[in-house]
Design a protein around this nucleic acid. Structure first.
Length: 215
DNA sequence: CAGTTCCC
DNA sequence: GGGT
């Protein structure tokens, strides 16, 4: 796997700055859907989709899989893990194409080279959503979050450092990548309920891939 | 409070 | 639809 898959320059209209340290790279991986989905399918074969319970005791509508370091939620709280406590084995490695994507997207967004150690894969069926939250379980807030949208469109909410801050609503479609870090690293964000639909490559789902540095 | 319900 |  080469590192130049995503090196093509982006025309300026494709880059949208939404806040200091937060950028939408519209269509950044639009041409790479099949390879990305193949990589995701290989991960999901090893780490089947799972619906977690929140600390409050509710079931999340989003189904999750992961590679690199894993994330989990339970009544005890959220946490990252290096391995599967059932099998004793490490979670599957992050596929090279996702490492390359993360590095190139982080560079395009102005964060320089990026070597994430965790990749969470979220499947949104119609009606699934993720309410406003912060990604704050990672040990390293100096690294940005790289978020890839595939399949059905969705409306991304991006707010400020306080839950009560006004939020922007940003439509995301298949192939869009959002990167946030630096002063935006702990901004509240979420996904509005996904509408019914069918995508020719992904089917009746939205798939979101987030790359982060957990440890 | 990574949810749901309710209210404007 | 948007805030809570």
């Amino acid at each position: 796997m080469t590192l130049d898959l995503f090196e093509d320059a982006l025309p300026s209209p494709w880059r949208e700055d939404i806040a200091p340290g937060a950028v939408v790279l519209h269509g950044f991986v639009r041409e790479h859907g099949p390879e990305l989905l193949a990589a995701i399918n290989r991960v999901v074969a090893q780490v089947p989709w799972r619906h977690f319970t929140t600390p409050g005791g509710f079931t999340m509508s989003v189904a999750m899989s992961w590679c690199g370091n894993g994330w989990s939620s339970s009544r005890q709280g959220y946490r990252y893990s290096t391995h599967d406590s059932v099998s004793g084995k490490c979670w599957p490695a992050i596929p090279a194409i996702l490492m390359a994507l993360a590095d190139e997207a982080a560079q395009q967004a102005g964060f320089g080279h990026y070597v994430p150690d965790s990749c969470l894969i979220n499947r949104y069926d119609p009606g699934s959503k993720l309410s406003l939250h912060q990604d704050k379980d990672e040990h390293d807030f100096s690294a940005p979050i790289v978020s890839v949208s595939l399949g059905l469109p969705a409306v991304f909410q991006f707010g400020g450092l306080q839950r009560s801050d006004k939020t922007q609503r940003i439509p995301l479609v298949h192939g869009d990548v959002v990167v946030w870090g630096g002063p935006s690293r702990l901004c509240f964000h979420g996904i509005m309920p996904v509408k019914e639909g069918y995508h020719s490559l992904v089917g009746p789902h939205r798939i979101n891939i987030t790359l982060r540095k957990a440890f």
